[in-house]
């Protein structure tokens, strides 16, 4: 430890007072948190998950008393970031900011080194967006027309997804099962390109969220139709759009974004984090920013959050099992 001290002294001489000041905190005892909390975001820069995590981090430090530092660890559909979280200590100083895709879909179709349900404690859900199926308004008027046309021409209606066995693909697998139809699945790299292709008329339908690629604006000006919404209730943003359940497809998928901690993190520390996050969700600046981004907070924590993930995980497990896709 002496070596570190010497190095630190030199650092101070070099004028790195601020950075060193933050690090020197690490050794002091005191009320949690006594040093910055790191949040691993298992995606690349610029996506909605990254943006949401940075929005939270830019406000939560007021209530936490320590900065929250976003660390992007993308790659391999988020499995690298999740695994990296498992390699850290369960002391509450490292959290992971994931989505339903990371906990409930990816573990069914990818080799993973962790158990997404039992190795992580769901801490706090920040927001969620229902998944949608969209088409150009001159292509399909409603879900029934889509299904009817698919029954007339099996395997001819195309769907642009954000990737193989991703959110969008899982949705149409369920539609195929429940409505007894067959899509022509075209995987894209991300939701944006899929929606662009749909707008250009290259694919018939695409998946997405209200906030993705200007969908809500297009729906409002009438250039696209939202055919179905994967929520339990109709959404305030588009009250005319029926849910999938209303249309005979038992599929609910709200793409949520939230914090999780490694198994074994002390409950009192989790409580402190939850408390700070709850206050953040009521913060005026935060509410304004989240509203502007198009995805207002919808907080959930504790047992309810855990149950939601369990139900979601079970739903996707059942879909992949029925389709006949299993891990070797």
């Amino acid at each position: 430890m002496k070596k570190i001290k010497i190095i630190k002294n030199i650092g101070c001489i070099l004028g790195i007072v601020i950075s060193m000041g933050l690090m020197a905190n690490t050794g002091l005892a005191g009320k949690f948190p006594t040093k910055p909390i790191r949040v691993i975001v298992p995606t690349g820069p610029g996506g909605s998950t990254d943006v949401t995590s940075r929005l939270v981090a830019s406000v939560v430090h007021q209530y936490l008393g320590q900065p929250m530092i976003v660390m992007l660890k993308g790659g391999a559909a988020g499995t690298i970031g999740m695994a990296a979280t498992m390699a850290e200590k369960a002391d509450g100083y490292t959290l992971v900011f994931g989505t339903g895709n990371h906990t409930s879909i990816v573990p069914h179709v990818r080799k993973v080194t962790y158990d997404s349900l039992n190795d992580f404690i769901p801490v706090f859900k920040v927001n969620n967006d229902p998944y949608l199926i969209i088409s150009r308004s001159d292509r399909f008027k409603n879900f029934k027309q889509l299904i009817d046309e698919m029954k007339a021409n099996p395997g001819k209606i195309s769907f642009g997804s954000n990737g193989l066995y991703g959110n969008g693909h899982s949705m149409i697998l369920k539609i195929e099962l429940d409505a007894k139809v067959k899509f022509k699945h075209v995987p894209f790299k991300g939701g944006g390109p899929a929606i662009r292709s749909m707008l250009g008329g290259h694919v018939d339908t695409a998946g997405g969220l209200f906030a993705s690629a200007g969908t809500l604006g297009r729906y409002k000006n009438g250039s696209v139709n939202i055919l179905g919404i994967a929520a339990e209730k109709r959404d305030k943003l588009a009250p005319d759009v029926p849910t999938f359940r209303e249309q005979g497809v038992d599929f609910v998928y709200q793409l949520w974004r939230g914090f999780m901690a490694k198994k074994g993190t002390p409950q009192d520390r989790i409580d402190i984090i939850v408390d700070a996050l709850s206050k953040t969700m009521k913060d005026k600046t935060f509410l304004r920013l989240m509203k502007a981004v198009g995805s207002p907070p919808n907080p959930l924590h504790g047992k309810e959050f855990k149950n939601m993930i369990l139900a979601e995980h079970k739903q996707f497990g059942a879909i992949f099992k029925q389709v006949g896709v299993t891990k070797k």
């Binding site: 030199i10 070099l14 790195i16 601020i18 950075s19 933050l22 790191r38 900065p67 976003v70 660390m71």
Partner: peptide, 19 residues
Amino acid sequence: SLVMPFLMDFFFYQGFQII
């Protein structure tokens, strides 16, 4: 050997919050 690493650490953390 001393200036370079410390400068980098300072710059990355203070400028970009990268650890």
